[in-house]
């Protein structure tokens, strides 16, 4: 990696830290957001143009088109949406980030798995990305009212744990045997998606902001894992920052609601009365 790109990544990383810090104070929050956005833009432009690869022009065109399409759609949605619908939009965007991480993992899994470490990062990136994607979509659906606030699944506890254990087992098996097996890959993908749905479905609509914050933190971890895969510092540090800050924020949000994190996540099927009262 060239020195210039490393410096650009370093600057971007610093803007992330400074931006997050400023976002935590009312008078500097707006500035913090802009600083972080500028750093992100710098990192993206640097990644596209600074490298020693021989890249055919068509790839550049495709990257440019993808960025243009995504930017326009993202901008339009963000500007057009009503103020009250913003939390659900955050959830939707977060889901897109998770999906992106999953897709990266899927491509990399089919291309090159040389070492156990690489396989581990790819497989965990796919699973975490898939969980955040489907989980965020469910949270989005709940907040915009297209999904019922509380959905009961019979034997929720057992089903959920079973799915979780199966994912871990399959992931471990894939890492252990190595190589490319599409069937396992799609199985893992499906497992992650199902778990994300099961995770968010029983949680009440009022607790969604907390869940979104938690899922956002998971997306950060997925980004960090992808950063390890590519030995890419801006992804690693940026992702970890979001991951740890996201967890702290999640806990702070629970405290503000006078609840604990575990009561939000696991309380949905024990505290039935107050939830049905809210409906």
């Amino acid at each position: 990696m060239s020195v210039l790109l490393s410096v650009i990544y370093l600057i971007a990383t610093v803007t992330f830290v400074v931006g997050l810090n400023k976002l935590g104070h009312p008078e500097t929050a707006k500035k913090g957001n802009l600083i972080a956005a500028a750093g992100m833009g710098l990192a993206i432009i640097g990644t596209i143009f600074i490298h020693d690869l021989q890249v055919p022009i068509i790839i550049y065109i495709l990257i440019g088109a993808a960025i243009l399409i995504g930017s326009i759609i993202g901008w339009l949605i963000a500007v057009k949406v009503e103020m009250t619908k913003m939390p659900e939009l955050v959830s939707l965007f977060n889901g897109f980030g998770g999906a992106s991480a999953t897709l990266i993992g899927v491509v990399e899994f089919s291309k090159n798995v040389d070492s156990t470490m690489q396989a581990t990062t790819i497989v965990s990136g796919i699973v975490i990305g898939a969980i955040t994607f489907s989980g965020s979509l469910i949270a989005w659906g709940k907040l915009n009212g297209s999904l019922k606030s509380v959905i009961k699944i019979p034997q929720y506890n057992i089903v959920n744990n079973l799915v979780f254990i199966s994912i871990i087992a399959l992931a471990a098996y894939m890492v252990a045997i190595g190589g490319y097996n599409p069937l396992f890959l799609y199985g893992l993908l499906a497992g992650g998606l199902v778990y994300g749905i099961l995770f968010v479905l029983p949680i009440g609509g009022a607790d969604m902001p907390v869940v979104i914050s938690l899922l956002n933190s998971l997306t950060g971890i997925a980004a960090a894992i992808t950063g390890i895969l590519y030995d890419n510092m801006v992804m690693l540090v940026g992702g970890i920052l979001v991951g740890s800050a996201g967890i702290i924020l999640t806990i702070a949000m629970c405290k503000a609601m006078n609840r604990t994190l575990s009561s939000v996540i696991f309380g949905s099927f024990t505290a039935t009365n107050d939830i049905s009262g809210a409906n």
């Binding site: 931006g19 956002n216 895969l229």
Partner: peptide, 13 residues
């Protein structure tokens, strides 16, 4: 804001 930052995964993409 943290959610926007987690979009850093685009670098990998």
């Amino acid at each position: 804001g943290a959610n926007a930052l987690s979009g850093v995964v685009i670098v990998g993409a």
